[in-house]
């Protein structure tokens, strides 16, 4: 299976991961992605019929927390790293699609 990743696909995945990219960059990535994906297609050779994906194999037994409240971190400390804060809130510009 040969597949090329065209600039539209590059732009689509860039949107999915919220990355601003230019047309030139999309062009550049498109070429690189196609050869990398082509390389990945080597996995098609492997027979994985009846193979359980590794993500389903638990390494450890259940690790659960008791439902106990622990002290929270200080709000000042949290907000110190925030680019914008107001009245104890983190502030961001308008969110598109909301009134």
């Amino acid at each position: 299976m040969t597949q090329t990743i065209d600039t539209n696909t590059v732009k689509h995945v860039a949107t999915l991961v919220r990355l601003g990219i230019t047309d030139e960059e999309a062009q550049k990535f498109s070429g690189q992605f196609s050869s990398i994906i082509e390389y990945f297609n080597m996995l098609n050779e492997v027979d994985t019929e009846n193979i359980v994906p590794a993500s389903d194999i638990a390494n450890a037994e259940n690790i659960l927390r008791e439902d106990v409240v622990k002290p929270s971190m200080s709000r000042e400390e949290f907000l110190r790293n925030a680019p914008q804060a107001e009245g104890g809130y983190v502030k961001v510009p308008t969110i598109l699609g909301e009134e």
């Binding site: 107001e86 009245g87 104890g88 809130y89 983190v90 502030k91 961001v92 510009p93 308008t94 969110i95 909301e98 009134e99």
Partner: peptide, 13 residues
């Protein structure tokens, strides 16, 4: 929780 203001939104975690 988001509180929507005129030109911004305030976030309470």
């Amino acid at each position: 929780k988001l509180a929507h203001e005129k030109k911004s939104a305030l976030i309470d975690f």
